[in-house]
């Protein structure tokens, strides 16, 4: 096993040269995404765009807003290292910018989770890295569907 763990025994991401800016931004409680000039945003970060395999993409600030696409409530701890967090809402969130990512939904009772609910990014600092989590959005569902894209700002040299 080579997955690093934090002080509580939870698995942590181990950054790579390509993913380092993503994890640096998360530490600053910001969500950034790679954006290809032809094919738009993608997730997860990788050296080449998964549509056109070009390498001229750039990091851009993301809105942190999204919609809950699918979820499960882990009742037993499929990863024993997560058992202190049960019941754990593991989710797939569709970001406003388009890509979908894996996350946990927090600040929401499992029985209140609804597919399609608006959510927004929140951050959890582990020992050394920060996870991008999501929580129910304060916005109304109408705002959730009509809001525009976040400010664009290249952060890749």
């Amino acid at each position: 096993m080579s997955q690093p763990i934090d002080g509580n025994g939870r698995p942590m991401p181990r950054r790579t040269p390509i993913s380092a800016p993503y994890f640096d931004a998360a530490k600053a409680h910001r969500l950034i995404l790679p954006r290809c000039p032809r094919d738009g945003f993608f997730f997860y970060p990788r050296n080449r765009c998964p549509q056109c395999l070009s390498d001229d993409w750039a990091w851009e600030e993301a809105s942190g807003r999204g919609t809950l696409h699918a979820f499960t409530v882990d009742r037993v701890g499929h990863d024993p290292a997560q058992r202190s967090r049960l019941p754990l809402v593991v989710a797939a969130v569709d970001l406003e910018e388009g890509p979908r990512l894996t996350t946990d939904l927090v600040d929401c009772a499992p029985e209140d989770v609804r597919i399609g609910m608006p959510v927004e990014a929140t951050f959890e600092d582990l020992d050394g890295e920060t996870l991008v989590l999501f929580k129910p959005s304060a916005r109304s569902p109408t705002e959730a569907t009509s809001s525009g894209r976040g400010a664009s700002r290249s952060s890749r040299e």
Binding site: P13, V90, T102
Partner: peptide, 10 residues
């Protein structure tokens, strides 16, 4: 290891 496992998706 970076984007799924830390969230308990295993």
């Amino acid at each position: 290891s970076q984007y799924d496992i830390p969230y308990g998706l295993v």
